[in-house]
């Protein structure tokens, strides 16, 4: 049993958070904070203080920095890719394995195969990465255009609210009456069956005008142009869309202005 109060007052917790402790002290703090809730609480409070201080002296980095950083990271937008990567990994041969008899030949052969595998794998990775960079650059240009488009003063923002079919659904539409551009952002919509797609409509003098189909994703999606619109609505249609809306599948709607 240690004297918890004395331990806290020794200042070792402050040292720990300042990165100013030996390896042994570090383990000690980590171990004791698991055993004694008082130490854990104290540690968290000092950490909060430091965070508060850091936030008080926060400085906003230039906006371009984020894009630069994002371009260096590999995101897992498609989850199946990860599994594939693991499957492609070269076999690992323990360094301290002591093969007996003829076994080493097999191991040597296996490691050569492994090395070739690694080479092939890396080449494939390099190709994949350069494609990704190209893709991201295009994406970035598009985004910049988007931002410019979204900042125009004449833009109309319409929030389409969920109807009886799906009250919690909601979609945001941006419409520029001058350029006629329409974009939407899914705030909340149930994921449709694979053979279905949502379709956006503009209502002009009571008549629906097709503005295209879209998927449920977080990105802003560009739709067809709309010269006029009194309201916007979204219905669930067969994949690829329908010439007229299925009114029993009306999900969200919102009036312009």
């Amino acid at each position: 049993m240690i004297d918890v109060k004395a331990y806290i007052e020794s200042g070792v917790l402050e040292d720990y958070l300042g990165g100013n402790v030996s390896e042994q002290e570090r383990r000690e703090v980590e171990c004791l904070s698991k055993i004694y809730p008082e130490i854990k609480t104290e540690l968290d409070q000092i950490a909060d203080t430091l965070e508060g201080l850091a936030r008080a002296q926060a400085v906003k980095p230039p906006a371009a920095l984020k894009d630069k950083i994002m371009a260096q990271l590999e995101f897992e937008d498609a989850p199946e890719e990860n599994e594939q990567e693991e499957a492609e990994e070269a076999p690992v041969i323990p360094l301290n394995a002591r093969p007996q008899g003829m076994q080493w030949r097999w191991l040597a052969a296996a490691s050569v195969v492994g090395l070739i595998g690694v080479g092939v794998y890396f080449n494939a990775r390099v190709d994949e990465l350069s494609q990704k960079v190209a893709l991201q650059t295009t994406e970035l240009h598009q985004k910049n255009e988007w931002i410019a488009a979204l900042n125009r003063a004449e833009n109309q923002f319409v929030t389409l609210k969920g109807l009886d079919k799906s009250p919690s659904s909601s979609v945001r539409v941006v419409w520029n009456p001058t350029t006629q551009e329409v974009a939407l952002n899914v705030l909340s919509l149930p994921q449709p069956a694979t053979d279905k797609q949502y379709q956006l409509w503009a209502l002009v003098d009571g008549k629906p005008v097709d503005l295209g189909v879209f998927d449920v994703k977080d990105d802003l999606q560009k739709m067809k142009l709309a010269a006029k619109a009194d309201a916007f609505a979204v219905t669930l249609e067969k994949k690829g869309g329908s010439p007229t809306p299925t009114l029993t599948e009306l999900y969200v709607m919102g009036k312009v202005g």
Binding site: A54, A58, V59, K66, E74, E76
Partner: peptide, 19 residues
Amino acid sequence: QDRKAFNYLYDNYSDAIYG
């Protein structure tokens, strides 16, 4: 490796770290 999560992390912490 979720993109949105990184966005959130960056937006919430980059100012303090940069400071």
